[in-house]
């Protein structure tokens, strides 16, 4: 099942990232995962948070430009080679990954990889067929 990822436009200037993350922190929004894509002019902050709807609301109120994207969170064992295995399954099926980022959890021995693909359902089906689980919202938020 796909989950909501929030992307925030971050201008390339000193202090801008601090401002954006402070908006989330001040509102008590807990980040599960984050990554930043950077270009010469701007960055895109991508976050998975505990309460996406509220996060979007307060970011918009703070004047940020945000977009919500459905991404896949894949649970994998925190062992060498397991990321490669999952990506291999996707590429063998001709699914290209726009971007991905990973995080480990407090739950011992487990990691999550966030995948951005064109067609979530198709990717999910292929992963499931290979015995790879995708996490749902509640599972992620309970971490």
């Amino acid at each position: 099942m796909a989950i909501d990822q929030i992307s925030v436009f971050v201008e390339n200037s000193v202090g801008r990232l601090a401002e954006v993350t402070a908006v989330l922190g001040d509102a008590g929004i807990d980040m599960r995962a984050m990554c930043i894509a950077d270009t010469t002019d701007f960055g895109i902050l991508r976050v998975i948070v505990s309460n996406p709807n509220r996060a979007i609301e307060i970011l918009k109120a703070a004047g940020c430009v945000v977009s919500v994207t459905q991404v896949l969170a894949v649970s994998i064992p925190d062992t060498p080679g397991s990321l490669s295995r999952v990506i291999g399954i996707l590429s063998d099926s001709g699914i290209s990954v726009e971007y991905a980022y990973a995080f480990i959890t407090r739950k011992k021995g487990n990691a999550y990889v966030i995948f951005r693909v064109e067609n979530n359902e198709q990717a999910e089906e292929i992963l499931a067929g290979n015995g790879v689980k995708t996490a749902d919202t509640s599972e992620l938020y309970e971490l």
Partner: peptide, 15 residues
């Protein structure tokens, strides 16, 4: 000034 219509989660689309 960037607008929600112009913005996306991927660099490629914005470019």
């Amino acid at each position: 000034e960037v607008t929600p219509e112009m913005f996306s989660d991927t660099v490629k689309k914005i470019s």
